[in-house]
């Protein structure tokens, strides 16, 4: 379980997050919805301890990671997988090497086990035949699936997605969303999805938090979003896709 308690964050004079409180329970898919540049990705980075809040607490599985040192955070981070918006694949490594990179780096597993897990992710992501290709030779959707495979290969409890369908064509988006849905059913995984696309929320999320002007203006099960009265939520429900 990941918890944000009254988190505030400033970059210089600009207040990015104001008193944000959120809970992400295990085995649920929670979406964080909001317009671009509002601090959604920042929330994911806070959950991983990549950045520190100016106030409030970030709690992962009962451990307060707010002021934890970088070295102590590594073990916490390995409980979570992260899929970055730009995928953040290592461009000089092949798909197989990208998938196995962190297993070789951080886990003392025998090489056979690493290869077995890489193979498993290649099959799960439908990337058979692309094992020895570099990321640059794959399409956007394929790269996203490699990034998801790389996050899953650790067998994390929770997976964090930063705009998982942004920049993808409708077919690739659909594939990514069904891949995310299958995670909970097949792997019992929890997930946090940061997105500005409301259709993604209704397609995969159990619950949703709406971030607007640095504050959470809605936090409940997805179905109740239709009943929300906040003008911003009404406007996104009518427009469906948020203005970029």
């Amino acid at each position: 379980m990941i918890e944000l308690r009254n988190v505030g964050l400033k970059y210089g004079d600009k207040e990015i997050l104001k008193n944000v409180s959120l809970t992400v329970r295990d085995n649920t898919i929670k979406a964080i919805l909001g317009p671009s540049g509002v601090g959604k990705s920042t929330i994911l980075k806070l959950m991983l301890g990549l950045i520190k809040p100016n106030k409030g607490q970030v709690i992962v599985d009962g451990t307060d990671i707010t002021n934890m040192k970088e070295a102590s955070l590594y073990s916490i981070r390995r409980k979570m997988g992260m899929v970055f918006q730009g995928n953040a694949l290592f461009d000089s490594l092949t798909i197989s090497q990208n998938l196995g990179f962190f297993l070789r780096e951080n886990m003392k597993l025998p090489e056979e086990e690493i290869e077995r897990r890489v193979e498993e992710q290649i099959q799960f992501a439908g990337l058979e035949g692309y094992e020895d290709q570099l990321p640059e030779s794959l399409s956007g959707g394929m790269r996203r699936r490699v990034a998801i495979g790389r996050a899953l290969i650790f067998k994390p409890h929770m997976i964090l997605f930063d705009e998982p369908t942004a920049g993808l064509d409708p077919v690739s988006s659909k594939k990514i969303l069904s891949l995310i849905s299958s995670l909970r059913h097949n792997n019992n995984l929890g997930a946090v999805i940061v997105t500005h696309i409301i259709d993604d929320v209704f397609n995969v999320a159990d619950c949703v938090a709406v971030l607007y002007q640095g504050e959470i203006i809605f936090d409940d099960v997805t179905e109740k979003l239709h009943n929300a009265q906040h003008p911003f939520i009404r406007s996104i429900l009518s427009d469906k896709i948020l203005e970029l």
């Binding site: 980075k45 991983l48 990549l50 970088e70 070295a71 590594y74 073990s75 981070r77 390995r78 979570m80 997988g81 992260m82 970055f84 918006q85 730009g86 953040a88 694949l89 290592f90 461009d91 962190f102 780096e105 951080n106 790389r150 650790f154």
Partner: peptide
């Protein structure tokens, strides 16, 4: 810029050591 250094940190590798 391409968040590869953040990815190293996110998956538990010290980017300075690596």
């Amino acid at each position: 810029i391409s968040e590869q250094i953040d990815a190293l940190r996110a998956f538990g590798t010290d980017p300075v050591a690596k």
